Amino acid sequence: MIHEIVDLMQAIPMFDKTAGSQLNVIAAHMNILKLEEKEQLFSEGEKSDYMCFVVSGKLEVIKRADSGKPVTVSTLTRGRSIGEMALLDTYPRSATVIAKTPCTLLIISREKFDNILEQYPAVGISFLKGVSEMLSLQLRKASGLLADAS
């Protein structure tokens, strides 16, 4: 199964510069999840302890507005990720995520991520750097959207 996961990781830009031996370590700590159309991945307010990478399909990210109305804030496709904050903090999910189409995802839990950091620090630091870069880009995009909305 590790070889299958390594093959699927080729769809994720974060892993483009990751050496083969490091990919094998990360893959050994990941699982594959398949979602059907309209299946919910997680719900806003739930406890969180894993992040996902989209290998195929489309995910819809929905945030509840102050009015209570659900608002689609993003659609994620191949190569994107969701739930990065769950590896770094213990706060509840900040949005609901539903499959718009059948999806294949790679998942890593906080526990497995922590195992990588303990057993393979260089791999863990590389992975953490990739997650940090993704979060930084998302924050830059969000702040740009907020500035444009003003």
Rank of each mutant, 00 (worst) to 15 (best):
G144L: 06
S67C: 03
H29Y: 00
P121L: 08
A122G: 11
S132Y: 05
D7S: 12
S74F: 01
V73Q: 04
V131L: 13
G124A: 12
A11K: 08
A19S: 12
A122M: 12
K112Y: 01
E84L: 06
D66S: 00
A99S: 09
S150W: 07
K34E: 15
A86R: 04
R80V: 01
L41H: 12
L135A: 09
F53D: 11
V55Q: 05
L139S: 13
K112S: 10
A11P: 03
K47R: 04
L59N: 04
L59D: 03
K38V: 02
D148R: 15
D89H: 02
S143P: 05
T75N: 06
I82W: 07
I107C: 08
I107E: 11
L106D: 02
C52P: 14
F15P: 10
C103I: 00
I107M: 12
S143E: 12
A99L: 03
M51A: 07
E46V: 08
I2W: 01
R78Y: 04
V6Q: 06
E133I: 09
I5L: 14
E84N: 05
K38F: 01
M30I: 01
E44R: 10
L145E: 14
A99V: 02
K58F: 05
Q22N: 06
P102R: 08
M85L: 15
S43G: 03
I98R: 04
S56K: 07
G124W: 05
S74K: 04
L59W: 05
A122N: 15
L76N: 06
Y120S: 09
I5Y: 08
M1H: 13
L88C: 00
M9Q: 10
L146F: 15
G144M: 07
D148P: 15
I116Y: 12
R110P: 11
R78E: 14
L87F: 00
R80I: 02
V73T: 14
S21E: 13
A28I: 04
T90G: 05
G79V: 05
S143G: 04
V61G: 01
I82C: 14
E44T: 08
V73K: 07
K17W: 06
S150Y: 08
Y50E: 13
K69M: 02
L145N: 09
F42V: 02
E60T: 01
S94R: 05
L128P: 15
K129L: 11
G83F: 01
T104W: 01
F42T: 05
T72N: 03
T90D: 10
L88Y: 00
S132D: 09
G68H: 01
S21C: 08
A147P: 00
L35K: 03
G83H: 07
Y120E: 08
P121K: 09
L137N: 09
E39R: 12
D114E: 06
K47P: 08
